[in-house]
């Protein structure tokens, strides 16, 4: 459906290796771009965007059956970013997929720009306005339920933050999704271990998350949330069980890709200084060179 096509290769394994190589490069490019727009706007949720961008990369380039042309098609797959604050990652991926010109992002967070600091439906490709936490899963469950009722084959993917899971509304929706057997619904937890105050386990312990989801009737998988190959495989194999909603706990690093931003809660919505920005770009450009095919 949306899989990029590689003409020279015939062998399936080689094709997949090429695809993963391309995805890997794309992730680095996305990091470069999202930092550029955050720097330009002097605002943004840097750490979380860097932690979830590989997930978004794989979803939009390999998994989701949606494109600018099919963004209103009732049969399209739906993506809902419940952790709305990581909108910069979503914006650069949607721009790359052609939902809007990337130059629009020059206006990010500017006066009267529709590109505000959390997702809104004013932007083509965005399904739901999010930002207040604990809302995306109920919405996704409703959309998934409608798909079941109408026999439309679409899937719904909801990205949750780990800190966000303290919102009780998530657990209400988990119960409902399991009750209705919504196997067309997949939640992905960006498990970067951090929230704005510090470590999730110190703020309000979440573990064991696997056991909690399983106890709520979900089929659970864990994955390295920066390994595009592993992400591609796990997200392409939903539902994990017929009749159950699926959850992927993606182990990630907040601030991933920029050494001094990694695993540091201060980059939750930190904006790099000129010097920090240059250092970040140097690191990312070096990664890009290393990733040359």
């Amino acid at each position: 459906m949306m899989m990029p096509c590689f003409k020279q290769r015939t062998d399936k394994k080689r094709k997949e290796a090429d695809l993963d190589c391309l995805l890997h490069r794309k992730s680095i490019e996305y990091r470069i771009r999202l930092l550029k727009y955050i720097k330009n706007a002097r605002a943004g949720h840097t750490g979380g965007s860097l932690s979830c961008v590989d997930i978004l990369n794989v979803l939009y380039n390999c998994v989701l059956n949606v494109s600018p042309e099919t963004a209103d098609d009732p049969r399209r797959d739906r993506y809902i970013q419940s952790k709305g604050h990581s909108v910069e990652a979503l914006y650069v991926v949607l721009a790359d997929r052609g939902f809007f010109p990337e130059s629009d992002l020059e206006t990010l967070c500017r006066f009267r720009s529709p590109y505000v600091g959390h997702p809104t439906r004013k932007i083509r490709g965005i399904e739901h306005n999010t930002g207040a936490l604990g809302h995306g899963l109920a919405f996704g469950a409703g959309a998934a339920l409608a798909g079941k009722m109408d026999g439309l084959g679409y899937r719904v993917f909801v990205l949750l933050g780990d800190g966000e899971l303290a919102e009780g509304s998530n657990w209400e929706s988990m119960m409902t999704a399991a009750h209705y057997g919504l196997d067309n619904l997949t939640a992905i937890v960006d498990r970067n271990q951090l929230q704005i105050t510090g470590r999730t386990e110190e703020v309000c312990a979440l573990e064991s998350l696997v056991d909690k989801f399983a106890a709520f009737g979900w089929s659970v998988r864990e994955v390295d949330g920066h390994d595009v190959t592993a992400l591609r495989k796990v997200l392409s194999s939903v539902p994990f069980e017929v009749g159950r909603p699926s959850v992927v706990i993606a182990h990630t690093v907040k601030g991933k890709g920029v050494s001094f931003m990694e695993n540091d809660a201060k980059w939750h919505h930190g904006v790099p200084s000129d010097e920090e920005y240059e250092r970040a770009m140097e690191e990312l450009r070096a990664q890009l060179e290393e990733a040359e095919p």
Binding site: P74, E127, H128, G134, H135, L137, A138, F139, G140, A141, G142, A143, A144, L145, A146, G147, M149, D150, G168, S169, E172, S173, M175, T176, H179
Partner: peptide, 22 residues
């Protein structure tokens, strides 16, 4: 559609259903 005693869920699910044309 019954969601149980969960009003936040009620409204969120209703929005999701409405988004799909219900």
């Amino acid at each position: 559609v019954e969601v149980g005693i969960a009003e936040q869920n009620l409204v969120g699910i209703a929005a999701g259903l409405a988004s799909a044309g219900k």
